[in-house]
Structures are given as structure tokens and as C-alpha cells.
Simulated scan of single mutants.
Amino acid sequence: MFSAKIGGIGSYVPEWEVTNNDLEKVMDTSDEWIQERTGIQSRRYGKKHKETSTTMGARAAEIAIDRAGIDKEDIDFIIFATLSPDYYFPGCGVLLQREMGITNKEVGALDIRNQCSGFIYALSVGDQFIKTGMYQNILVVGAEMHSMGLDFSTRGRNVSVIFGDGAGAVVLQRSTREGQGILTTHLHADGTYAEKLALINPGAHGGYHAEKMGEDTDFGYPDTKYGEMFVNKKMIDDAMVYPQMEGQFVFKLAVQKFPEVIGEALEKTGLKTSDIDMFVPHQANLRISQFVQRRLGLKDEQVWNNIQKYGNTTAASIPIALCEAWEAGAVKDGDLVCLAAFGSGFTWGSALIRW
């Protein structure tokens, strides 16, 4: 059985570069504080009212399609991963289809909501479709427009300094060579501590946190009408419409799960860490990537990090970094590429690819 290969890859990041020094002007922070904790020096923000997760995803997709040597009309399925969709619903998959003008074939569009692990999950789903022969050219996109939903105040600095905007895309096709393409993918999740990293409000639960739900407390809002439970002034005033994160908890779990899921992939394929030519981790935090690198015994030239200049672009981070590595010649034909991610949910996963 032949696996899916990456036939084309593309990425897009907005022009507007926001440095740590720029953030110092709107919140109590510093370049030293941000770099020490995250390794980030700058990030990109999209143009307000002009760019969205969909439009950025489309730009990356156009490049990937061109590099795959096909036309957009050849795409027969779309998978879109994001945690920052243009709308609450419908998802970005159909919006991307419209943006790119490929609605004439009425191809299916699937939205993946696995946050930082979204691209790995999307790759795995696409791989299964290619293996069964159901689709021939699957467009997989990871895109994020974080800047539209961050708390740019000292209150929100622990989260807001981390994230940036951007998009990456690949075209999955059937490999023509045995042993080429996606060798294995491994997906995991544990929702026990979901609220440790989450955007809880607004939501259908109608209150601040899941634990406050219930008839006895009226969802935490006495005398609040049902329509007002989704979003109201108190939620906004209390800054509960922004992402919430317990950083230390996330860090400790991430450095545990990253090596585990990579080891799982290597064991499945009978390969060793030393066989990895390029490791592209989700760009969550440079300190996490460096910790995992040391645990795996990888050299600097075996790991690709670009969080320093783009921040954490969540579902877009792996395809952006992979595209950048490929464009730089760091990923070559026949190389063994390892991808891994960990994020909100919590979800995590890995993929081994023979380029």
C-alpha cells in the first residue's frame, strides 16, 4: 500500500512585523522578559479587515498547488486546521474553497479543531484518504489569525506575547515510490485538564467555566437571559473572552508528551533518533523545543525552529517551519522528517515522513 506524499508545500506570513519592543508600548513587558520565557523576538500580524485565517490560508495553498504541478481544479478534498476561524460557523474549509474559486467541483471540505496539533491530525486524516484511493489531491491547510483575539494589556501579556499570524499548506498525493511519503502518524488526546489552556467564553455552556454550569447557579449569571449567556458585558469586563493558559502546567506536560509520541513513531517504523534528518516541532515555545532536542540527543542542524521571528502560529506553525526548511535546502529528497505537536485539549501527535 502506497502512502501519501507531500507533493507541494507553501506558506504565507503577513508583512506587518511586531517586535517585542513594539509590545512594550502597550503592556508592561520587555524584550528580555519575552525572550527569556519563550525565545520569541518578533511575530507577524495580519491586516485588520483585510486578512483572515481563510485569506492567508488561500495564499499558502496557491503556492503549494503551484509547486505540486497541478491546477486548483485538481484538488478533490480540503482539510483546514485552525483555532481562529473567520466565523463561529461555518468553518474555514468552505470559505477557503470560495476564496480560491474552486466551488465548481463541490469538493468536500473538512474542518479540524485540534489547535496546535491540528496540522498533524489533518495530515493523518489526509493520509488515510490517499491510502484508500478515495482522493488523489488533498489540500491540507493550517492557518491562524490570533491577533484579532488577544488581550493587548498587561493583564493578558502571558498569552498575548506568544502568538502570531500566518498560514501553511501542503498538497497530499499518492506516492509513486515505495517507502516514500508519510510512513506513520500517531494521534493522542486527554481532555482531563482542558481548561488549563482554553478560550472558554463565549460558548454554548453559558458561563465562565464548565464547573460553574448548573441549574442551581443559573450558569453563574442570575437573571441572565439565555441569549445573553453566550456573550455579555460581564464576560468582556472580566476579560473572559480571551485565551486562558496555565503556562507551567502546559510546559511540563508538553516536554513529557513530545518525546513519547516521537518515540512511538520511531518504534513503529523500526527507526532510531539518529535516523532523523530534520525534526520540525510545533513552534510553541523555544524552551520546549530545546528541551526536547536535548532529550532526543539531536544536533542543532537536525532541528528547525523559527518561533523567534513568527511566534506561535498554532496549526500553521509546523507547515510554515517545514516550508521554510525545505526552501532553505535543509529538507532534501530521501530525508527522514519528523513532525510533532502538543497543544490545547490536550492533544498531541507525530508524523514521520520520507521526503
Rank of each mutant, 00 (worst) to 15 (best):
I120V: 14
F219E: 11
G343I: 15
I70N: 00
Q128A: 08
A143P: 00
F249D: 05
K47I: 11
E36G: 00
S53F: 05
N312S: 15
A210F: 14
F251G: 01
D335K: 09
L296T: 00
R44K: 11
E24W: 09
G329P: 07
S274N: 12
M245V: 14
G206H: 03
F258P: 03
M278S: 03
D238P: 06
K257Q: 05
K234H: 13
E260T: 12
G227I: 10
F2R: 09
A194H: 13
Q283S: 08
Y12A: 01
S350V: 11
S289N: 13
E267K: 13
I78G: 08
Y88C: 01
A210K: 14
K268R: 10
G270M: 02
E99I: 05
F129H: 12
Q136M: 10
Q115M: 11
G203K: 06
N285M: 06
I288N: 08
T29I: 06
E215N: 06
N232M: 06
L83T: 14
L110D: 03
W355Y: 10
F119Y: 14
M1I: 12
Q128K: 11
V161S: 04
P222K: 09
A325P: 00
S30A: 05
W304R: 09
D86Q: 05
K309N: 12
V125D: 08
M229R: 15
L150I: 08
T55F: 01
T314P: 00
N305M: 13
Q244N: 06
T224M: 08
N285H: 04
Y208F: 15
G108W: 02
G345A: 05
N114H: 09
L296D: 00
T132A: 04
C323T: 11
